[in-house]
Amino acid sequence: MSQATSLRKTDVTLTINGKSYTRQVEPRRLLVDFIRHDVGLKATHIGCEHGVCGACTVRIDGRTARSCLHFAVAVQGAEIETLEGLSADGRLAGLQKAFHDAHGLQCGYCTPGVLLTAEEFLSENPEPSEQEIRAALSNNLCRCTGYVNIVKAIANAARDRDKTTADPAGESRK
């Protein structure tokens, strides 16, 4: 049995940030264009469209992925999360604050991809070394910051996150 589609437009349904969206698109429609232009969520940026720069990073079924390297039709039915969703439900609050405090962004174009990469990384490596942070960013291109303050922001976010878990009452937080 095959879910046959052709050159003609076809219905694609994706859950994005918990909400279901159905749009009629061509099979070649890139996921990033579906998210940005068919649904209208613009936080996910396009930097290279060949999977190198990381600006278009989203989560597909709970894991980061490059949305420029997926056809929307091929992830039919998937759960997609973007910066808008992670930001709205507060999951990124610690990282966002750390980036603000450490000046971890300049033009802000790579930032959504960097935040999603960092969030996934920190959720699995709560106490990362500088080298591990740099390795985790190894495919997120930033042309503004020289990575110095991005690395610092992620390290600071890890430290502060650590405090929050070690001290659930939050007494040590000012």
């Binding site: 613009k42 936080a43 996910t44 973007t82 910066l83 808008e84 930001s87 990124l92 966002q96 980036f99 603000h100 962004l105 802000g108 174009y109 930032t111 959504p112 935040l115």
Partner: peptide, 9 residues
């Protein structure tokens, strides 16, 4: 920063 960090730039 705040709007860029929310992807609202």
């Amino acid at each position: 920063d705040p709007y860029l960090l929310r992807g609202e730039g």
